[in-house]
Write a protein that binds this DNA or RNA. Structure first.
Length: 737
DNA sequence: AGCACGCCGACT
DNA sequence: GTCGGCGTGCTC
């Protein structure tokens, strides 16, 4: 019997699994996901079993030495690992780390005596092997002994045979557990507080009709162990209540739950809601947890001590052996795409994991991705709709402000007269204002008035942004440059153009000196603690104006806010990305949803130079369906997802000429192999140079994943990547490159 | 990690 | 001509 094993070579996992022989003594002990000790070269290391090939082309197949843990990973999780490696074109050894904690802790193997009291009842003649009697006598005295101690007492192969004989005849049983402390048998009750569950049950009365209907579908799915759903609920419609009730239903079936949120800052509020209901069954998992903590959480989930994990996309790989439900909140968020190998999409992986483990998958959003809504229209996701706002909250009044007119009237600031008026009256009423701007820093464009010189980053070939501390910064690599105010080329004066969060903050402080202003962007939020501080200050009304970027657009619930201003709705609209309009629509809809979440009527002002743009007009009307129909028509016409499957091949290197010629020769090969493959490019990447490396790209279109993969395999098989060039393979790219 | 192989520069 | 620097790649 053979096993393929992902082997650890020092700190790295070898990409391609290696084939070993399973010794007769370990057959039955080894399955998918077993952690084993194996020989490699002239030494030993550990590895994870990921398959059982029939044959091997390798001559000197070595033999697996020892089982370190029979079930490090649940089998379906190993299947998921292999599927991901194939789907995203990477090696299993690259995928494995996603599924493992930073420190692998070994469980101990124990042998427990079952066969009656003392050695009196034991007859040496009962056993074939003479050692067996001795071992039996020893075990019957001690009751429970680690394998390690038996090995030290009886070194050599004989012991294994003795234990095998005892196990086969039911005298002893093998157990795996942590440490040497006496077995703490508690696996019976999941530890769920009955009272809390009852609370949850009672809350069903307070659900709206739509929420109850959605829940009903989810419960049916949970009972059947299958079903994929798109929960389309406008902001404030109570998606979270539906999630909570579905979680309770999954727990009642003895199953675990994974809840994903798009970013860090959103974990606490989701976790708090879940902890209120399910207490210590809830754990948090994300990339920035300290190593030890991450390992602890991972163990709790694996052992069943914890059953609900809340986290960012990496929490999708939590080792839950019994999985009932996966929730992906704010499903449309681009953060669900991983930007390193393996370049997976958490939404796709969640659907696959659900299928492999018999779990229900719920994608939730107020503004679903075009792809998800399309799947729903095809019946591949069951659409659940929440159109009503709960607790009498009203949709805000949205007003679009045409900034072209402002400028025609000779105004030069970044706050329109109308927005200033509204800020003034809002502050007078003692209410709060949220200002949204997608750019940090002070001025994103710096240009010489005389010769047109633009200070750029030497590493990244992008323009530098001026910051209030008097420095020019690159927003890609963080490079800082001093500022002299004059052009280094002609000595002319440099103009500061465009507005970032700092500039808007300055403008607010000038116009409203009495306002208490807070700024929330990645400059002011260096640490998650700082974000928490700002959040709490604003919530406690210690400030009345909050200016921010992305982070404040998502999920934040400030009851005191009655005015939301979008400074420049156009920034994201004209990016060279087929999803630019969708992003703009989503962003504006989410931002608008921040106003008037409670009973107070809210107002939203959107400043734009494109007041007719459908993404803006329809966001203002909170009209998702109309936007979707426009968008899906455009995707069909232009042949973009979901009508085709995309891939991106990125080439990086220190010398531009080499990168370009590599890109062209790769393109030529792909054009030759492609029957159903459409090759776009080569073209320089959107950011053509990052951290000193030049980047070119090819975009590939195919009818589906299968065709894409076949063409890529054929093409890349014939392509020899020159030294000094890095090739990045990405299936289903989501972000600009 | 270890170990082989391999391709350049300094030596006998 | 050979010896040996350590960069790169392989380990079933």
């Amino acid at each position: 019997m053979l096993a393929s094993v992902i082997v650890n070579s020092s700190k790295q996992w070898i990409g391609q699994p290696l084939v070993y022989e399973v010794p007769a003594s370990l057959i039955g002990e080894i399955r998918l996901g077993t952690w084993v000790r194996v020989p490699i070269g002239n030494r030993e290391t550990d590895g994870v079993v990921v398959g059982f090939p029939q044959e091997s082309t390798v001559q000197n197949v070595k033999v697996i030495g020892e089982v370190l843990d029979p079930e490090l990973l649940p089998s379906p999780v190993v299947e998921l690992l292999l599927w991901m490696s194939e789907y995203y074109l990477c090696l299993p050894g690259e995928t494995l780390p996603l599924f493992l904690p930073p420190i692998l802790k070994r469980r101990q193997c124990f042998w427990s005596w079952l066969g009656g009291k003392g050695r009196e009842g034991l007859d040496p003649a009962l056993f074939i092997n003479p050692l067996t009697f001795e071992v039996a006598a020893y075990l019957s005295r001690r009751g429970r002994v680690t394998q390690r101690s038996l090995k030290s007492r009886w070194p050599g192969k004989e012991l294994d045979l003795a234990l095998q004989e005892l196990e086969a005849r039911g005298f002893v049983v093998r157990e795996w557990s942590w440490g040497s402390k006496a077995s703490k048998k508690q696996a019976s009750s999941p530890g769920l507080e009955e009272e809390n569950l009852r609370d949850i049950e009672q809350q069903v009365i307070n659900l709206t009709f739509e929420q109850r209907l959605a829940l009903k579908y989810l419960e049916i799915g949970l009972k059947q162990g299958k079903g994929n759903f798109l929960l389309h609920g406008i902001t404030g419609s109570g998606k979270t209540e539906v999630y909570l009730r579905a979680v309770a239903a999954a727990l009642n079936l003895g199953k675990g739950v994974i809840v994903l949120v798009p970013e860090h800052s959103l974990i606490p509020q989701m976790a708090e809601r879940l902890k209120e209901a399910f207490g210590h069954l809830v754990v948090i998992l994300h990339g920035d947890l300290p190593t030890g903590e991450r390992t602890g959480v991972w163990e709790k989930l694996r052992s069943g001590e914890a059953k609900i994990v809340v986290g960012t996309r990496s929490a999708l790989f939590a080792p839950l052996p019994e999985l009932g439900l996966i929730v992906i909140d704010e499903e449309h968020s681009p953060t669900y795409k991983h930007e390193a190998n393996p370049r997976y999409d958490a939404r796709e992986v969640a659907l696959k994991r659900g299928q492999l483990q018999g779990a229900v998958v719920v994608l939730g959003s107020a503004t679903p991705s075009t792809e998800a809504y399309f799947l729903a229209s095809r019946g591949q996701l069951k659409l659940l709709v929440l159109k009503q706002r709960v607790a009498g909250g009203q949709l805000p009044k949205v007003e679009i402000i045409d900034m072209r007119e402002e400028y025609l009237q000779g105004r030069s600031g970044y706050l329109s007269v109308r927005l200033q008026e509204e800020i003034r009256t809002t502050l007078k009423r003692g209410e709060q204002v949220l200002l949204f701007l997608n750019r940090r820093g002070y001025a994103p464009h710096v240009t010489c008035r005389c010769c047109g010189y633009v200070p750029t980053c030497t590493n990244c070939a992008v323009g530098l942004t001026y910051h209030v501390d008097g420095k020019l910064r690159c927003h890609y690599c963080g490079l800082e440059k001093g500022w002299r105010g004059s052009c280094p080329r002609c000595g002319g004066s440099l103009a500061l153009l465009g507005a970032g969060t700092q500039r808007v903050e300055a403008e607010i402080r000038t116009i409203f000196p009495e306002a208490r202003v807070l700024r929330a962007d990645s400059d002011s939020l260096k640490s998650p603690r700082r974000w928490r501080e700002i959040y709490n200050l604003f919530l406690a009304r210690q400030a009345n104006v909050l200016i921010g970027t992305q982070t404040i657009a998502k999920g934040m619930d400030f009851p005191g806010v009655s005015l939301v201003g979008v400074i420049n709705a156009d920034v994201s609209l004209f990016l060279p990305d087929f999803r630019a309009r969708e992003r703009t629509f989503q962003l504006l809809t989410q931002v608008a949803g921040r106003a008037g979440r409670r009973s107070r009527e809210g107002k939203v002002l959107i400043q734009t130079f494109n007041p007719q743009e459908p993404a803006i007009v329809l966001a203002a009307r909170q009209d998702y369906e109309s936007f979707y129909h426009l968008e899906i028509a455009s995707r069909r016409t232009l042949r973009y997802p979901p009508f085709v499957k995309l891939a991106r091949l990125g080439l990086m290197g220190l010398y531009e000429g080499e990168v370009i010629s590599a890109a062209f020769s790769l393109a030529r090969i792909l054009k030759e192999v492609g029957t159903s493959l459409e090759v776009l490019g080569p073209a320089p990447a959107a950011i053509p140079k990052v951290r000193g490396e030049y980047r070119w790209q090819l975009t590939l279109k195919a009818p589906g994943w299968q065709e894409l993969k076949e063409a890529l395999e054929a093409g890349l098989g014939r392509y020899c990547c020159p030294p000094g060039i890095k090739l990045i393979k990405e299936i289903g790219p989501v972000n600009l490159w």
